[in-house]
């Protein structure tokens, strides 16, 4: 964790229309260290996809700037790979063709054999060996998103941007892919920025969780440090003594505080948002530990979500 690798500095997004300007969000400050996994969580319409698009260079902020690795970004870059919600594979290309397209875009002087070998190694990494010559239409949703991940990783980016990458998948496939993404990010020390509205996904994957209030006029409410150990596993995640406290804190935010935040905290300083530490960090997961409060399994978030 060395300094600020990514720094979003006071960005805003406004749209002008006949009735005046609509501010989706403004004065948004956010930073990430190298190798960190960050999740932005919030309801639809809070502008989280816009934040990601600005970070990717696909969209431009109305105000403010984004600095990545010491340089203000302008436009898209091969340093920042995007995994799209709808996988966005080119349907007329095969799996290998889709990954090779990215590889040959990054290294234009490479010959075919080298591009293929490089693309193949990333197809192997996401576990699609044997499906190289299939077209996207022949793949299941999960396999398509694996190709999307392989394509993003194949250009060895400085950071990965993920826009609700698993929201269109069934629960089982989503879990497997979350495991894969977590494994790959830990192995490669990848900096990752993910948009989600799935609380459990954020808790499992993120080092830091950024809850955003409802738009229009959305703000970053706070920074929640994930207290769970880095070597957490999907199966014993919920046994960690701080799991439910963390989960409840985020669910409470999404259910109530995301609506009332602006009115309830008039002295909110977007440049220095409070950092929330749930309990004491660094506790190991005790495999025999019981969930500390059973009532929390039926928290209001699930009923309303």
């Amino acid at each position: 964790m060395s300094g600020k690798f990514v720094s979003i500095e006071g960005i805003a997004k406004r749209y002008s229309s006949a009735g005046g300007t609509t501010t989706i969000f403004e004065n948004l400050w956010l930073s990430m260290a190298r190798g960190e996994f960050a999740c932005v969580i919030g309801h639809s319409g809070c502008g989280k996809t816009t934040v990601l698009n600005i970070l990717a260079g696909l969209d431009e902020p109305s105000e403010g700037a984004v600095i990545v690795d010491g340089q203000a970004i302008s436009g898209t870059s091969l340093d920042r790979a995007v995994i799209f919600q709808s996988h966005a594979l080119l349907p007329w290309r095969t799996v290998l063709g889709n990954v090779s397209y990215a590889v040959s875009s990054k290294w234009r002087s490479w010959d075919r054999a080298k591009v293929r070998a490089h693309a193949q190694s990333f197809i192997d990494l996401v576990g699609l060996t044997g499906s190289e010559h299939k077209r996207p239409s022949e793949l299941s949703g999960g396999m398509k998103q694996r190709v999307g991940i392989a394509r993003a990783l194949s250009i060895t980016p400085k950071m990965m941007l993920m826009d609700e990458p698993f929201s269109a998948l069934d629960a089982l496939t989503r879990g497997t892919l979350q495991d894969e993404v977590r494994r790959i990010c830990l192995e490669t020390g990848q900096t990752a920025f993910m948009i989600t509205h799935d609380v459990d996904e954020a808790i499992y994957l993120a080092d830091k969780i950024f809850p955003m209030t409802n738009g229009p006029g959305a703000v970053l409410a706070e920074i929640v440090e994930n207290p769970l150990p880095r070597d957490r596993g999907r199966t014993d995640l919920h046994r960690h003594p701080l799991y439910y406290a963390l989960r409840n804190h985020i669910v409470d935010f999404l259910v109530t505080r995301s609506k009332t935040f602006a009115a309830g905290t008039p002295d909110h300083d977007p440049r220095n948002v409070p950092i929330v530490h749930i309990g004491k960090p660094g506790l190991a997961i005790a495999s025999d530990a019981k969930p500390e409060a059973p009532r929390e399994t039926s928290c209001p978030g699930q009923a309303r979500a």
């Binding site: 898209t76 995007v82 397209y101 990054k106």
Partner: peptide
């Protein structure tokens, strides 16, 4: 042409 395909090309600096 689907915006997402154009975006893929844009993020790849094509």
């Amino acid at each position: 042409v689907r915006k997402e395909w154009i975006n893929v090309a844009r993020t790849l600096e094509v």
